[in-house]
């Protein structure tokens, strides 16, 4: 604990960061801060610039413009200090496939001049789940186990800031829930977590999120605040024939937006139009069992609204 006291309150800070790959502007003038102990989610699709940001902050690549610090250390000048105090789990499986589970963990511990025993407490909850397979080669593990091993390896040197690049991509909903449970536990131990995900439903599990697309933030705030700033009234529409309903809603000029959303279609309606009129029109088009109810938007609704107005 004493160690942590002289660490800056701002765990991560980016100011005007840009990164280009030839003509592609991967990150465009991005600024944001992550406070100590926060779970901050970078939410956005592939190609949004998430991985470039991770690589800049973990000192693996240099930004073209701007400055960034992690634990108060500059990503260019103090890169060695940053590497000592952060853990990084890249999007692609980063472990040695030909080493066993235990060997991988030992390797990462040794690289950071520590031992498994010294920091076992921190990884215990996660590692016990894969410990029965400690003599199995990492390449032979299932997806869920690989993920747990990678997280253990990223934690073994007791980092204060953890960078997780799409740890749950391609992972089934049950394992994803479990993984977020582990992150909550790490947060309780004071670890700051920057995590990226393409799954919008994971946004609500973060303290704050940055919605990111095409190298720029659409919005940075708490999930609740982002939802409360949704500018429109949102409705969930259903009828017996969902396929034709979407087409009929699109064809209606009073419907401002319409997106399939699980078992309903989320729509926003022009101000001079009423839901009763819409129901009447849909009836005339032959729809049955029409239901149009007001609903609270989710992060995915917000993302789509913001990305369309961007």
């Amino acid at each position: 604990m004493n160690n942590n006291q002289n660490i800056a309150e701002t765990a991560i800070s980016c100011s005007g960061i840009s990164k280009n790959y030839k003509k592609v502007e991967a990150v465009k003038d991005v600024s944001f801060e992550v406070s100590r102990g926060e779970i901050f989610g970078l939410i956005g699709p592939d190609g949004a610039g998430k991985t470039s940001l991770f690589r800049i902050l973990t000192t693996l690549i240099l930004a073209d413009n701007g400055t960034a610090t992690v634990n108060g250390f500059d990503v260019v000048k103090d890169y060695k200090k940053i590497r000592e105090c952060v853990g990084y789990m890249p999007g692609r499986f980063s472990l040695y496939q030909d080493l066993t589970v235990e060997e991988n963990l030992e390797f990462f511990a040794t690289v950071f001049n520590t031992t498994i025993e010294e920091n076992y407490e921190l990884i215990k909850d996660i590692y016990v789940q894969i410990e029965p397979f400690k003599t199995r080669r990492a390449g032979k593990l299932s997806g869920g186990m690989k993920q747990k091993l990678a997280l253990s390896c990223a934690l073994i040197h007791k980092p204060t800031v953890l960078f997780l690049d799409e740890p749950t991509t391609g992972v089934d909903p049950v394992s994803r829930k479990e993984f977020w449970g582990m992150l909550k536990n790490l947060k309780k131990q004071g670890i700051t977590i920057l995590v990226s995900t393409p799954y919008m439903d994971e946004a609500s599990l973060c303290d704050r999120i940055g919605l990111i697309q095409n190298g720029e933030f659409l919005k940075i705030d708490t999930p609740d605040n982002i939802i409360s700033q949704f500018a429109e009234n949102l409705w969930a529409a259903k009828s017996e024939n969902m396929h034709t309903l979407l087409g009929d809603l699109r064809a209606n000029e009073h419907i401002k937006s319409s997106f399939a959303f699980g078992d309903s279609i989320h729509i926003t309606i022009a101000e001079n139009y009423e839901v009763e009129k819409l129901i009447e029109e849909l009836k005339q088009k032959g729809h049955k069992k029409i239901s149009i109810k007001p609903i609270k938007p989710g992060i995915e609704d917000c993302f789509m609204e913001l990305s369309q107005s961007a």
Binding site: G44, P45, D46, A48, T169, G170, P198, M200, Q213, H243, L246, F259, A260, E300, F303, M304, S307, Q308
Partner: peptide, 24 residues
């Protein structure tokens, strides 16, 4: 096999419209 991994929510939905058209 997991055709929509990683794409943004609007593209994901447009993709499903292609699936509907193919099925139709």
């Amino acid at each position: 096999d997991e055709p929509t991994g990683g794409v943004d929510p609007i593209t994901r939905r447009k993709f499903w419209e292609l699936i509907y058209a193919a099925a139709a």
